[in-house]
Amino acid sequence: MKMAVSTTVNGDPRAFLCEPGETLLEALRGTLGLTGAKEGCGTGDCGACTVMLDGEMVCSCLVLAPEAEGRRVETIEGVAEGSDLHPVQRQFLEHGALQCGFCTPGFIVAAKALLERDPDPSEHDLRYWLAGNLCRCTGYDKIVRAVQDAAAEMRQQARGDAA
């Protein structure tokens, strides 16, 4: 028996049918055609499927698709505004903070979530916040530096906006 789910994905209303046991990740990648969130493990250990659900960071492989009913889902596809990259995305490119890029969508969603709640995280806090996202290529060095520079850029921008 399929279930009907009405939700908002990256600001757009979306309605879809799913099996009761289907995960949000499966619905996003399958029915909704949003393959930016990746499945690295299916058990919530790698963070490649990280999305925001009502402003909270979740592993979409651990959320059932019907749980998205009436809620706001934000994915990597919604991070850039049109063709304007978010500072975290831009700094990832400037730093070469990706090699294969498979973990990158999860890292960007997670880093953006961190900077929205803490605009000036210490390296220690940043590393612990991102500890739920696995990267096997980079050794994290350039990722940490990219997020630090994105934070600085966003603080500067916020000061500019306030002035």
């Binding site: 393959t35 596809e77 990259l85 995305q89 990832f92 890029g101």
Partner: peptide, 9 residues
């Protein structure tokens, strides 16, 4: 291939 990889494309 950078933009494709930071935007999920």
């Amino acid at each position: 291939d950078g933009i494709d990889k930071v935007t999920g494309k």
